[in-house]
């Protein structure tokens, strides 16, 4: 059973904040969904290795080279910054 404290801890890890009401709802939803997923405990996985999707084992690389973009595109990118100083992205101080 997932506790209210568990939900709060996970919510912190996920960099989200929920109201008390939302936490209660989330606790109920998660409990229901996780209970459903307990179905997997019935599957016998003793003989299998975990599968992580693609069978593709080859590594594809491409040259790491600078590509130019148009001034319009550059402005579109800069224009979406939340805060900027000149052409620099401005954020709050990280090291205090």
């Amino acid at each position: 059973m997932i506790s209210k404290e568990d939900v709060k801890k996970i919510t912190d890890l996920a960099r989200l904040r929920l109201s008390e009401e939302e936490i209660a709802k989330m606790q109920k939803d998660l409990a229901e969904i996780l209970e459903y997923t307990n179905l997997l405990n019935k599957a016998d996985v003793s003989l299998v290795k975990a599968s992580f999707g693609s069978k593709n084992k080859e590594n594809f690389l491409r040259p790491d080279k600078v590509q130019s973009i148009s001034e319009g595109t550059r402005q579109d990118i800069l224009g979406q910054f939340s805060e900027k100083q000149g052409d620099y992205l401005k954020v709050k101080k990280i090291l205090t």
């Binding site: 997932i2 568990d6 996970i10 890890l13 997923t37 997997l40 599957a43 290795k49 599968s51």
Partner: peptide, 22 residues
């Protein structure tokens, strides 16, 4: 986040990837 978190990864994510193979 819960399924990947420490202490639950094996029981959920790892397990699901094995069932995926089945």
């Amino acid at each position: 986040t819960f399924c990947l978190s420490s202490g639950y990864y094996d029981a959920y994510y790892q397990k699901a990837q094995k069932v995926r193979e089945l």
